[in-house]
């Protein structure tokens, strides 16, 4: 499948992935994230169940301290 991840095209060899699987595959090690799939907020407790499919627009913003 092909998705748009943070405004960039990404290809994966499977039909669907959970948010947790995408985080692992893309090696996201940051823990404080804001995730949206097609404009819908996905909260942390849904990372294991929310699925990402072909054509989805996914945003994974990681937050770091400072300000």
């Amino acid at each position: 499948m092909e998705i748009l991840l943070n405004n960039r095209r990404e290809s994966f060899d499977t039909e669907a992935l959970t948010v947790s699987e995408v985080l692992a595959l893309k090696k996201f090690t940051f823990r404080m994230l804001v995730v949206k799939i097609n404009g819908e907020l996905v909260k942390k407790e849904q990372y294991g169940s929310a699925t990402i499919k072909h054509g989805d627009e996914v945003i994974i913003l990681h937050l770091i301290s400072g300000g």
Binding site: M32, K43, L61, H62, G66
Partner: peptide, 30 residues
């Protein structure tokens, strides 16, 4: 404009939940 990343996340998620289209200008990494 929070300092702590957990507070940043809480604010952004809560804003997205209640006002999904309101523009939020985030500062991260400085």
């Amino acid at each position: 404009a929070f300092d702590d990343k957990a507070q940043k996340q809480m604010l952004i998620e809560t804003l997205l939940e209640y006002f999904p289209h309101k523009p939020v200008v985030v500062g991260t990494g400085m």
